[in-house]
Amino acid sequence: MSEIMAVRPARLNRVVIYGLLLLFAGFYLTPLYVMLTTSFKTLDEIRGGDILALPAQPTAAAWLRAWAEACIGVTCAGIKDYFWNSIRMVVPAVLISTALGALNGYVLTKWVFPGHRVVFGLMLFACFIPFQSVLIPMARMLGLLGLSNSTAGLVLTHVIYGLGFTTLFFRNYYETFPNELIQSAQMDGAGFFTIFWRILLPSSAPIIVVTVIYQFTNIWNDFLFGVSFTSGAAAPMTVALNNLVASSTGVKEYNVDMAAAVIAALPTLLVYVLAGRYFMRGLMAGAVKG
């Protein structure tokens, strides 16, 4: 009898916990639901006022218009070119900042030198510098390098600003690797890059996933650097989305705006869906361990 009485509170607690989780999940996902349903509605249906209703006659016309026909400023060619601008910006910026962060973390833990803690402290300090404080010097530097109003300039900006975070992640991860393993490889004649490439890097998959997801999300969603350092056809997706919503052609097309917003969010959603489990494993493996 006592066992039965003990099981009932456990079941009740489980029901309460899962009920609250479902409630919070529904509350959190409501904006996404509204965006999706609105993007498949016609303007007449949207004007009906029932924002939570499913589309009576679903149509993908708003998606096609957002991709290839919507007006952004004075150009009515959709968001497709700006979407590819963001892809061309994000991929190299993520790869370069991740590779440099891995090398930095390796040097700061396994090839220590006098003052390495000061160097790491300065790089860590860079993580807390507000974006706004670097706009003027970064704009000046991009101008001197001839990279103003270009995707390459944004790549350089995000690599520099993200290097402190990627170094932090890899440094904390490599700190857990036994130094004896590195010393044994050195005694066998392995050099700097051989140790990194054949010993540390093959074991770095969890932290690489964490870093890639973190950098991809931050760079893709960035608006400040994009709007400050680019304009017109060189702008990334976030700037184009803002300009699309701000553009007016006489009729406010909410379905087109919502479709464009979902398109802008899809890459980050896909990254988390496909690699979310590995992100948590990487964090537990020491990515944010002090």
Rank of each mutant, 00 (worst) to 15 (best):
S150H: 05
Y161Q: 11
M187N: 07
V134F: 00
M141H: 08
P114Y: 12
K110N: 14
R281Q: 14
G78D: 05
C127E: 12
T157I: 14
A56K: 14
T42D: 07
K110F: 09
P130L: 01
Y18E: 03
E3Q: 11
L163W: 03
L100G: 09
F177G: 05
S86K: 09
A265V: 06
G226V: 11
G189I: 03
K80I: 10
A6H: 07
V90P: 07
A70K: 10
T176F: 04
D50Q: 13
C71G: 10
V251M: 01
I208C: 02
A275C: 14
V91M: 11
S150L: 09
N149W: 05
R140E: 11
A185P: 08
A205G: 09
P206E: 09
K80V: 09
L36G: 12
G143N: 11
Y161L: 13
V159A: 09
L122N: 08
P58I: 13
L156T: 03
K252Y: 04
F169Q: 04
R171D: 04
V210R: 05
I182D: 13
M237N: 09
I129P: 00
R8C: 00
S133N: 10
S248V: 02
N13Q: 03
M258K: 02
R140T: 13
T167H: 03
L95N: 01
L43K: 04
R140K: 11
F131P: 01
W197E: 11
Y28H: 01
I219K: 06
K80R: 12
A240Y: 05
L283F: 00
